[in-house]
Amino acid sequence: MSNQPLRVENLHLWRGERHVLRGLTFSLGRGTCLQVKGPNGSGKTSLLRTLCGLIYPEEGRVLWDGEDVRRDLRAFHARLAYLGHEPPLKGDLTAGENLRFWVGVRRRLSLADLDAALARAGAGGCSARLVRTLSAGQRRRVALAGLALLAVPLWLLDEPTTNLDADGQELVGQLIAEQLARGATVIAAVHHDLPRAVPAIEQLELAA
């Protein structure tokens, strides 16, 4: 294992007739966070989806621990967690059930772990409530709890602070900081800067 687990080489991506990514190259070390900024439509989401292998780039490759992730995409997926615009939660399930199914597909989960993660994310009282009845901010906290439970070394976050109050944003910062302290790598696409709690931020600016 190298100290720069993630490496992106010469990534070119077209969306329809737009050349969104033009030869993007970078490496990212353990314990660092990359903040991807840029106006709407500059390809932030596309970049994240390309990194995790949902989108197939026209050219270039993504390496994890020195190996092309396309070689064994499933093994790579087992190491990453992706959180899109919408938290992947069902309104008709309780927060606890949501996490049990979402996280449980990937790893064994004890009730104690689950409750601890929810409490840590500031959603301790939500476990038995239907997600339908939660506020947008509470839902995002539940999703963040799920993210922490996945316990993987690479996080890809699309706008992790949307819908959150000042406390919530601070919490995202703390969760990211903890994840970094464990030696993980985090990439976040953001409109506004990540909270100050996050150390070791590198910047990537995408042009429109």
């Binding site: 087992a78 790893r107 064994r108 993660a117 840590r120 922490a148 993987v152 903890e178 302290a181 464990r182």
Partner: peptide
Amino acid sequence: MSAPGVALAPERAAALAV
């Protein structure tokens, strides 16, 4: 390296695998 919360997957991967 240690921090509060759960460990990263590789260390406990075998025990947690589904």
